[in-house]
Amino acid sequence: MTTSGPLPDFIVIGAMKCGTTTLAAQLAAQAGVFMSTPKEPNYFSDDAVFAQGQGWYEGLFAQAPPGALKGEASTHYTKLPTHPETLARMTALLAAPKLVYMIRNPVARAVSHYIHDWSLRVVGDDAEAAFRSRTEFVDYGCYGMQIAPFIEAYGRGAVLLTCLEAFQTDPVAEFARVAAHLGLPEGVAWQEGLDAQNVSGARFRRLPFQSVLVDSRAARALRRGLVPKALREKIRARRQMTARPEIPADLEARMQARFLEDRAGLAQVFPGHPALDLCYPFRPA
């Protein structure tokens, strides 16, 4: 293992749609902490990004102030089986990073994942068809399966398990747990003024050629000059999902059974962890 530049001290490794963007924003707001831009470089997971080389990755942390703890947050790192090379690449470069794995109710996560993909036009309006055909909605919520390889590679002490529900209940206390695990400087604290980031309910469906026809400065100027505001808002509202999709009862029951089976593995690694109750309200009493 050879390095020529700065590397992260810690990584938020997932899971997708579990609050990692908000956590990364909170970490970035702390004195003595430097977070990468982009927030999700996905260096170890995505082949095209990894091909840019170690120098590119080290460059993400080159502007960190002396003594600052450096971190990144890439949810692709816990997306098995989609990105099978992630851990081998990570262990080849990072000897002992601190890891944070953030989870949530896996059924709710799957719904948020669907909304995310719907907004990107990866899936259509038929939520039932999407849930029945796309295995990643379940796979990415099998947290025990996803985290086990990291535990084996880096040890239980390297990984902090946290969950969205804990942050929703007591963000100050839960952020203090994260800070202690990462070894953040004294005085860091949850910033009440920062809004939740990347919320699924705030997503709008992308339009064909959106970068040219919608997002460009010229397109924005034309819309404001030619299209009445009321009409713009009406069109925008049609691109937003107004109600969270429902999973058919039979399919949800099968999903819950799979998640509970996976939970048993998670409980073996994190026995008695509060997330085991908070994230699985559908577990039989």
Rank of each mutant, 00 (worst) to 15 (best):
A179Y: 01
R232P: 02
M35I: 11
F204K: 11
P84Q: 10
C163F: 07
D277T: 15
L266S: 03
D250A: 15
P228V: 10
A48N: 15
W56S: 05
G19K: 06
N105H: 06
G55R: 12
T86L: 04
A176C: 05
P8D: 03
G155V: 02
L164S: 08
R254W: 00
D215N: 08
C279Q: 01
R232K: 01
A110G: 00
F259T: 02
S4L: 15
K17H: 07
I103L: 05
D126E: 04
C163G: 15
R258L: 13
P171N: 05
K234E: 10
K79C: 00
A92E: 08
T37P: 02
L231Q: 11
A62N: 11
V138W: 13
A173W: 06
W190V: 03
Q63M: 12
P41R: 09
A189C: 10
V212R: 00
S112G: 11
R121W: 05
T75H: 13
V188N: 15
A173H: 08
Q240I: 08
S112A: 06
E186K: 10
L94H: 10
P171Q: 06
R109Y: 06
A196T: 00
A158T: 03
G67M: 11
Q197L: 11
F34C: 06
A285D: 10
F44R: 13
L60Q: 04
L87N: 10
T3P: 00
I151R: 07
R203M: 09
P106M: 00
A202C: 03
K234H: 00
W190N: 13
D195L: 08
Y77R: 02
F270R: 11
S4C: 03
E85S: 14
S45E: 13
R220M: 03
A64F: 01
P248D: 15
L222T: 15
V33G: 02
Q210F: 14
N198Y: 04
M1C: 12
R220N: 03
S112I: 14
T78S: 05
D125E: 05
V12L: 07
V12I: 01
A88E: 14
H181T: 00
Q191W: 03
A218V: 05
R203F: 14
L278M: 10
F137T: 03
M241S: 14
G187V: 12
Q197M: 09
R238C: 09
Q268I: 01
T135I: 05
P8H: 08
R236Y: 08
A127V: 00
Q146V: 07
R203D: 09
L260N: 01
L207Y: 07
P65M: 05
R217I: 10
P41Q: 12
K70V: 13
K70A: 06
G19I: 02
A110H: 01
E252P: 15
L226Q: 14
D125A: 07
Y77D: 04
I115R: 03
K39H: 11
A129W: 07
I151Q: 03
L23V: 15
Y280K: 13
A51G: 14
Q52K: 14
L182R: 04
G265K: 03
Y154I: 02
F282N: 04
A28K: 01
S74T: 11
T2R: 09
K79G: 11
M90H: 09
V138P: 01
T21E: 05
D47C: 09
A221Y: 05
G53T: 11
